[in-house]
Amino acid sequence: MSLISHFECSRCQTVVPPSSEAPTVCPKCAGTLYVRYDLSAAKGIEARDRIGTTVQDRQWSGMWRYRDVLPTVEPVTLGEGWTPMLPSRRYANVFLKEEGANPTGTFKARGLAMAISMLRSYGIKKVAVPSAGNAGGAVAAYAAAAGIEAHIFMPKDVPLANQVECVAYGAHMTLVDGLISDCARIVGERKASEGWFDLSTLKEPFRVEGKKTMGYELVEQLGWEYPDAVFYPTGGGVGLIGMWKAFEEMEELGWVTGKRPKMIAVQAAGCAPVAKAYDEGADVSVMFQNAATFASGLRVPKPYGDYIILDDVRKSGGTVVARTDEELLVSLRDWAEHEGILLSPEGAASTAAYDHLIGTGFLKPSDRVVLFNTGSGNKYTDVLAQALGLTNGD
């Protein structure tokens, strides 16, 4: 694993040296901090080809195979990462990255495995997090594995599976009559008096490090070649931000060549702050009013890292797409019936967005693309049953 050389602010580029205290945000502008390493020992094809060959790789498996580009820490692992890259049965150049195969059934396991591992190493005893649902379940699981007390704040209408997870893992769960932004306000108001470490999206640097492993994985699984485009359901956007960081690191290391993929940030039309900002040419989003979508993970009315998402998308030559809940449901059923994959509503946003961009000509059928299904549809059975008009009994 790699020693952290420093932290760098994503907004003002302030350099923050490592210390014995767990880092949060930039002390000057409150921007998100990136972890920076001395990567000299991992440079070159030989170092790349050692991945997956050691005893430690076989012991830890999953995303920890990339330990040469991750912080030095003893992992709190439940087997996260190295999820399947499934070729579509209908579209020759389409691959689905199935993040539902992670522990707790979503991509959130990656970021929280890394964050909880690091926080345990810093001696943190209590964490709190606002969540749209799946992050809460992952925090509860990894905190339980690490012996850390977890406080989860979620909207009261999150899928039932998320609530069950939090209770079963022994977390302190609070259901809030509001959105994730309301949950974040409560955490912010109480964290100092309660002694909680705030594990909110992009308010500490290590969830990005876990999520960036998706970028390393998809490139390795495609033969160390970039795809033409990556579709990513974007609520908080940590995965998109992390993958773009991974691509920068891989190029510095000499692990990949060629043109980086177009990054396609996908939102639900009922909560599309980043899409609106992108269309208006803005550098940041504004609070999206009356946010409503059955894709609960996309119901983030103003992402903390909106400025990074917009910058990364524009640098890549990508775009931001918003599709309606009706379109998401149609695409979800299409992939279930014809591919045998039960997407999460957020994953269906990726597949619906792909159809849309093929239709507009932004992409061609010959373009090789990766669509992210960020969670198993089985975690949304109550939500999907309602959308499909199913009821118990009668």
Rank of each mutant, 00 (worst) to 15 (best):
Leu175Cys: 05
Gly188Arg: 12
Gly239Val: 00
Tyr232Thr: 13
Gly318Lys: 13
Ile358Asp: 09
Gly105Glu: 01
Arg185Gln: 15
Asp177Gln: 14
Pro155Asp: 08
Lys126Val: 10
Thr24Tyr: 01
Arg11Tyr: 12
Pro233Val: 11
Lys211Phe: 14
Leu240Ala: 11
Thr293Glu: 01
Glu46Ser: 13
Phe95Ser: 10
Thr104His: 03
Glu339Ala: 13
Ile180Asp: 04
Gln56Ala: 15
Leu112Asn: 13
Thr234Pro: 04
Leu3Trp: 14
Pro71Ser: 08
Gly215Pro: 02
Ala141Arg: 03
Glu217Arg: 06
Glu149Lys: 15
Leu343Val: 00
Pro130Glu: 10
Pro159His: 06
Pro227Met: 03
Ala348Met: 06
Thr32Leu: 10
Leu298His: 06
Gly297Leu: 01
Glu252Ala: 12
Gly258Gln: 04
His338Met: 06
Tyr278Trp: 14
Pro273Tyr: 08
Ala141His: 04
Tyr278Ile: 01
Phe231Val: 01
Asn93Gly: 12
Pro87Gln: 12
Gly377Ile: 02
Asp367Lys: 08
Tyr226Arg: 04
Ile186Pro: 01
Tyr169Cys: 07
Phe153Gln: 03
Trp244Gln: 07
Thr53Met: 05
Val313Arg: 09
Tyr37Val: 02
Glu280Thr: 06
Gln221Glu: 12
Trp82Phe: 13
Val129Glu: 13
Glu337Asp: 15
Ala144Met: 09
Gly359Ile: 09
Gly317Lys: 11
Thr106Met: 00
Val313Thr: 13
Thr374Asp: 01
Ala277Cys: 02
Lys364Pro: 00
Val370Pro: 02
Ala42Met: 06
Gln221Thr: 07
Arg58Asp: 12
Asp49Tyr: 12
Tyr216Ile: 01
Val69Phe: 07
Gln163Met: 12
Ser316Asn: 08
Glu220Cys: 01
Asn378Glu: 12
Glu80Arg: 05
Gly81Lys: 03
Ala150Met: 06
Asp198Val: 11
